[in-house]
Design a protein around this nucleic acid. Structure first.
Lengths: 246, 246
DNA sequence: TACGGCGTGTGGTCCGACCACACAAGCTAT
DNA sequence: ATAGCTTGTGTGGTCGGACCACACGCCGTA
C-alpha cells in the first residue's frame, strides 16, 4: 500500500469504529503525519484524494470553517469523475442519457408526496412561469426541478447520481436547444408536462409520474432531432464541456 | 483554483483537443511541473486525484508499464467513493441495495443475447459448478457474473456503477452469508437461478430475465433475514427505458 | 467599553534530495 | 557469437524543511 493510501484506510477504520463521523474535524496534517508515521506530503496526497471523493472538505485559517472536516458529498466524486471520463470519450453521452432516464423514471415513481423537496420543485416551476429568460435560465431551473424530484424519492445515492449526470451533459443539452424549431412552443409544452409530473407525484400516482417523465425526456430529445447514430455527435458535443472553476 | 487542480484542468483540455486519449502517456512529473508552472508536489497531488477518479494509472520504472498513463476506469472512482460514504453512514446500505436492484434489473432486461460478455458469464457459472470453494469464492464469481450481465446491456456507466455497488457492500454481503441456515442449499438454488437468468437473456426474453434477477436478489436478502420493504415495480420501469431514436 | 494589532494554528506551496524500480544498452566471460 | 551480468537512465514514491496566506481569538490600548 502506498503511503498516501494509509490516510483513507485510517479514515475508513475511524469511521467504522465510530470514532469519527460526518462533521468531525481531522487532526492537522502535521499531527496526522506523525501519527500515521508518514510524511506530511503523503498525508496531503491522501487528503486530496478524500477531497476529490467528496469525503472531506479542507479549509484554511482558524475557527469553525478551518481545518479538514468530514463531509458527505458523494455527488462531488461522481461529478468530476463523470466529466473527465466523458471527456476521454470512454463514457459515451448516450450511456449517460440512458442512465439518467432510468434513474429519473425510478425517482418519479418512488417520490414521496410528503417530501419537502417537492415544495422546492413547485417553486421552481413558478419561477419558470414568471421569468421568461430564454433557454439557459429555463434549463437551469429544469435541472434543479429534476434533481428535486430525485431527492423526493429518498435515495441519497440516486439523487447524487442524477445531479452529477445532469451536470456532465449540461453543455450538451444546452446545444440541443439550438436545434429546436421554436423555443417558445417547446417551452410551453415542457412547462405543462412539468406540472403534470409534479401533480402526479403529489397525488401519489407514481406510475403515472414515471410515464410522464419518460415521455417528457424522450420527447425533448426527439423534438431536438437527436441523430439516429448519435454517438459520434454526442462525443463531439461532450468535449466542449469545461471545468466550472477555470 | 488551487494549483493541484491545474493538472486535471489541463488534462481535460488536452483530452478535448484530442492531443491526448486513452492509452496516452502523460509527461513526467518533473516536466509537467515546469510546463504548468507549478511544483512537482502540486503535480503529484493532482495526479493522485486523477488516479483516484480512475482517469490515470501510475507506474514506476521504465518501459511500457511505466509512467502515468491515461486509463478509462470509472468504476474505480465509484468504488472507493461509495465505500467511504457507506462507511461514514452517509449512504445507507438500503439505498445501495435499492440502486443495485434497479440497475441489475435494467441490465438483465436490456442485455443483448449476442454480447460476448455472456460467454464470460457462462464460463463463470461453469466454474461455480466445478469449484466448490465455499461462500467467498462463490460470491467472488457471483459478483463477476452480475457485472458481465451489466456489460452485456451495452452501457458502460451502468456496468461500472454495478461493479462498484457490489464492491461497496461486499463485506456486508459476506456477513450475510453467515446468517444463512444452510449454505449448500442456498448455493444450489442460486446456481439454478443463475442458469435460468442466463438462459432467458440468451433467448432474448428480457422481461423474464429481469423478473428472475429481481427474485434472485430479493430472495437472497430475504433468506439471509433482511427485511426488504419497498422494491416493487422495478420491472415496469426498467423495461421501458431506452435511448430515444436508437 | 470599543477597537485594533498580533500571536497562533491551519492548509497551500515550494524546493531539493534520496529511494526503489524497471528497462535498455553495453560490457564481460564462456 | 552468445548468454549473462553490470551499469546507466528515467520513472514515480517519499521525505523533511521552509515559507506563505489566511482567519480566528486574545490582549493591550485608547
Amino acid at each position: 500500500m502506498r503511503n498516501h493510501q494509509v490516510v483513507s484506510a485510517w479514515l475508513e477504520q475511524e469511521l467504522a469504529a465510530g470514532r469519527l463521523a460526518i462533521g468531525s474535524r481531522l487532526p492537522g496534517e502535521r499531527a496526522m503525519a506523525e501519527q500515521l508515521g508518514i510524511s506530511r506530503a503523503s498525508v496531503r496526497e491522501g487528503t486530496r484524494v478524500l477531497e476529490a471523493l467528496g469525503v472531506v472538505r479542507a479549509g484554511v485559517g482558524s475557527g469553525p470553517q478551518a481545518g479538514t472536516v468530514i463531509t458527505g458529498n458523494p455527488a462531488l466524486a461522481l461529478d468530476s469523475a463523470l466529466r473527465l471520463h466523458v471527456a476521454s470519450a470512454h463514457l459515451p453521452v448516450k450511456d449517460v442519457v440512458e442512465t439518467r432516464l432510468l434513474l429519473e423514471t425510478w425517482a418519479a415513481a418512488h417520490a414521496s408526496p410528503d417530501s419537502p423537496a417537492l415544495a422546492r420543485a413547485a417553486l421552481l416551476l413558478d419561477e419558470m412561469d414568471q421569468h421568461d429568460d430564454g433557454p439557459d435560465g429555463f434549463l437551469e431551473r429544469d435541472a434543479l426541478f429534476h434533481v428535486a424530484l430525485a431527492e423526493a424519492a429518498g435515495n441519497v445515492l440516486i439523487g447524487a447520481m442524477m445531479g452529477s449526470l445532469r451536470g456532465s451533459i449540461a453543455a450538451y443539452t444546452q446545444r440541443l436547444t439550438a436545434r429546436l424549431p421554436d423555443w417558445s412552443t417547446t417551452s410551453d409544452r415542457l412547462r405543462t408536462e412539468h406540472r403534470a409530473i409534479l401533480d402526479a407525484v403529489l397525488a401519489g400516482r407514481g406510475e403515472t409520474a414515471a410515464d410522464l417523465v419518460r415521455d417528457h425526456i424522450e420527447g425533448f430529445y426527439r423534438e431536438a432531432g437527436v441523430p439516429r447514430d448519435a454517438s459520434d455527435s454526442f462525443r463531439r458535443q461532450a468535449l466542449s464541456i469545461t471545468m466550472p472553476n477555470t
